[in-house]
Nucleic acid binder design. Structure first.
Lengths: 206, 206
DNA sequence: GTATAATACAAGTAATTACTCGCATTCTAT
DNA sequence: ATAGAATGCGAGTAATTACTTGTATTATAC
């Protein structure tokens, strides 16, 4: 629509005033996405909802894309965190317990603001299927690899990387779909149950 | 951007001239999506690529959304068709053969213009997670239900609908991801192999 | 051949929106 | 207290773009 975006980075907030502002902006961005959808998401609206000036927004985010990316990044980091916590607790338990817990955590994470996660997973890749997102994903895959590879039951798997690729895509897709459809099965735990069975079966069979 | 779209339907093409034009428009829409991405997709550009007037486009499509929906519809119908064909050939074969064939067909379908399918699956729901898309999906689920439910090995499954929901989401996601990443595993059939194993294991276990 | 309907055209419009820039305010350090 | 840096403001701009409308062309019916 307008002038080309300046590819450059923006100022880092150093005073607490501005750090607060960045938080407000990001939160409002999420709110706008959730309440008004991706199509109506625009920087002017975000500034308005945040109760700040559009100029201030552009002081910290070089363009619209950067806002969305920040949200996506936060979500991926959150997932990584969750896996870390689970890893500590579960390292020595049977495979089934590990998988069930990972699945449950992932569902839990997506139960808050499911709409946001759906929008993010649909609309972020468009732009930078590149570096940082891939790095975070690889990091997550790495964590899972560590956690699973030391389990005797997975020793027989020729290509654990491929298996992990499939498992990750599967969990992500099913959880997104289930959370989005708000099915009863989600509430009563059937999805958790079935997903766990699906994955454990896959990881332990010939 | 401009005036609000007229929600009404547009003219049905009756002369062969105009039927050809509609085809050209739809094809060009796909081309623009593939070559220039969703963000740059706009009706003026589609008309230009199609070599026709923007006015003509709006004679047959009430708005931009309708163009995308038409493409999405065609894709879902294609999947339905593919399942129908497979059903005829496979009805009486063992479960594993059925699943493998369905998976293979689905991969095959997505190997042509993978980018298009990725964009469609990401950007269509935004608008009408409603009626027609759901109907087509339900129709597909129905076909699969018929095909699988008569197999002795699936008799023990308490909730075949839930199982199908999970299986469909899984296949869709893994195939999209694999096709998009253009992995070697796709080419040498490893993805087909693993997906089949995953699903057959799930459908035949406890 | 002519009237009528169907089809095609494309210049133009109104609205939206990403982003800038010059100025105002508030903080920090000395 | 004051300079200078950091932060904040928001009217304005340039570009994009979905869609309309009046007119021109082509097909069909009689």
């Amino acid at each position: 629509m307008p002038k080309k975006p300046t590819a450059s980075q923006r100022k880092q907030p150093t005073q607490s005033r501005s750090r607060q502002m960045v938080k407000t902006i990001v939160d409002s961005a999420a709110r706008v996405l959730i309440d008004e959808g991706y199509e109506s998401f625009n920087t002017n609206r975000v500034a308005e909802v945040a109760g700040i000036s559009i100029g201030s927004l552009y002081q910290y985010f070089p363009n619209k894309k950067a806002l969305i990316e920040e949200l996506s990044k936060q979500h991926l980091l959150q997932i990584g965190e969750s896996i870390n916590k689970d890893t500590i607790k579960l390292k020595h338990l049977p495979l089934e317990d590990i998988v069930r817990r990972l699945v449950r955590s992932h569902i839990q994470l997506h139960k808050v603001e499911p709409e946001l996660h759906r929008i993010l997973s649909n609309h972020v890749p468009e732009t930078s299927a590149q570096s940082w997102k891939n790095e975070l994903l690889i990091d997550i895959r790495e964590k899972l690899f560590q956690l699973l590879s030391q389990h005797a039951q997975t020793r027989h798997i020729k290509n654990l990387s491929l298996a992990l690729f499939i498992v990750m895509e599967t969990v992500e897709a099913v959880v997104h779909a289930a959370v989005f459809e708000q099915t009863d099965e989600l509430i009563n735990g059937a999805v958790e149950e079935q997903l766990t069975r699906l994955i454990v079966g896959y990881l332990t069979s010939s």
